[in-house]
Amino acid sequence: MSNIPADLKYLSSHEWVRVDEDGSLTVGISDHAQSALGDLVFVETPDVGRQLKAGEAFAVVESVKAASDVYSPVSGEVLAVNESLVATPELINQAPYGEGWLMKLRPSDSSELSKLLDASAYQAVVDAAH
């Protein structure tokens, strides 16, 4: 069973979003996604400062098996990327909701957050995939 923390928001394309205290967002891929991809070996992250639109591909995660795009949950500016993933992409496998985070984002339109899935809605997406 994949782990789906209740305090996060999700996309049906398997990204998670955490709203931090200062209003910025932390984004990664879900436990289900990392498990489906298998051992991750390469991560291509965006440049800090890049302006993203909701649904825009901002990163590529590659496992031994395949490459997969990762999509931005909302519009905004990239504040930081997880530099540890350059040398240790397997952090995503080991801690998808923790040390395996991909980027921090400053949202430009916080109303977009209401369109994201809560944990139970995302659970339904995962269940439907089986």
């Binding site: 298998g38 051992d39 496992s63 031994v64 098996k65 496998n93």
Partner: peptide, 8 residues
């Protein structure tokens, strides 16, 4: 089966 756990 494509993998049982870690492919690596």
């Amino acid at each position: 089966p494509v993998n049982y756990g870690s492919q690596i």
